[in-house]
């Protein structure tokens, strides 16, 4: 009997599929999976967060984050303005808005948890009349009314958690870090809804929406001035200013609102108040929280 080992052809126990091709397929699938799961969790967490009672939300805000540099007159003026707009926007019982003013020349404004709104001198100083300021305030109040801060934080935390778990480094302390209170990102849908609600409130207050569009012109000018590079959180996720301007015009036509009207001037002492706030912001460095975006 003759014993032989036949020559076995190659490629029976192995695959001739290119490893990079397989890598691309698998990695693409995994990324897709993570994104889909993250999105889904974000949506679920966002809608759950919206169900959180407003009183519970107020307890989540670190108090030291929201000091105000406003002098008593400016604070009273801003409070009055916010209260009136809040009335126009039918803020529900128990939901109050608190306006804080920072003397920093940061070009920004945002609403955060617990109905706290933070305005920065850099942006407010650039506003020509009360109508634009009201539009800005009403926009932030609308975020509070729509529960956008808590939904945004819930969404962001869930997405970070899911991606962290899947990628092997879960950051479970997301809710504890102060950064998320100032670096809120709202979806474009949220911004549109806030714009619409703010416009309605401004129209109700002044009988026309003249000057409201001014706010977006100022934002656009600032964006162009700074070269569109590093944008403050306030507009990074906002719909394009041009879009918003067009939406305003379209809404005004649809509702039959006057687009032009006499703008209400800011109080005579407004500039002094700004200087006062800037002075306060400059002095006690150690006692104030540094807000950085």
């Amino acid at each position: 009997m003759k014993y032989r080992n036949p020559q076995i052809p190659e490629g029976i126990n192995t695959s001739d599929r290119h490893p990079l091709k397989e890598f691309a397929t698998l990695a693409g699938g995994a990324v897709l999976l993570i994104v889909a799961l993250g999105w889904l969790m974000g949506q679920v967490a966002g809608s759950l967060a919206g169900l959180l009672p407003f009183e519970k939300e107020m307890a989540l805000v670190p108090k030291e984050l929201l000091s105000s540099d406003a002098g008593p007159e400016l604070q009273a003026y801003l409070d009055r303005l916010a209260a009136r707009l809040g009335q126009d926007m039918d803020l529900p019982e128990g939901m109050q808005v608190r306006v804080h003013f920072s003397g920093n020349d940061t070009f920004n404004a945002f609403a955060t948890l617990g109905g706290n709104i933070l305005l920065f001198r850099g942006l407010v100083e650039a506003l020509p009349h009360e109508n634009a300021l009201s539009m800005l305030l009403a926009h932030e109040i609308a975020h509070v009314l729509h529960r956008d801060p808590i939904v945004g934080i819930g969404r962001g935390a869930a997405i970070r958690l899911v991606t962290g778990l899947l990628l092997g480094s879960p950051d479970l302390a997301v809710l504890g870090s102060a950064g998320i209170y100032t670096q809120l990102h709202y979806s474009r849908g949220m911004e549109r809804a806030a714009d619409a609600a703010a416009l309605r409130a401004v129209h109700q207050r002044y009988g026309h929406i003249g000057g409201a569009a001014e706010l977006f012109n100022i934002l656009r000018a600032e964006r162009e001035r700074s070269g569109g590079g590093e944008m403050p959180a306030f507009f990074s996720s906002h719909p394009l200013d041009l879009d918003r301007l067009q939406t305003i015009t379209a809404t005004a036509r649809q509702q039959g609102w006057h687009e032009n009207g006499q703008a209400t001037p800011l109080p005579a002492a407004f500039n002094d108040w700004m200087q006062d706030a800037a002075g306060r912001a400059a002095i006690p460095e150690g006692q104030r929280q540094v807000r950085s975006d």
């Binding site: 490893p19 397989e22 890598f23 990695a27 699938g29 995994a30």
Partner: peptide
């Protein structure tokens, strides 16, 4: 690389 590929295979 092979390990990473195998780990991805674990998912699917």
């Amino acid at each position: 690389f092979k390990r990473f590929l195998a780990a991805l295979r674990n998912l699917f």
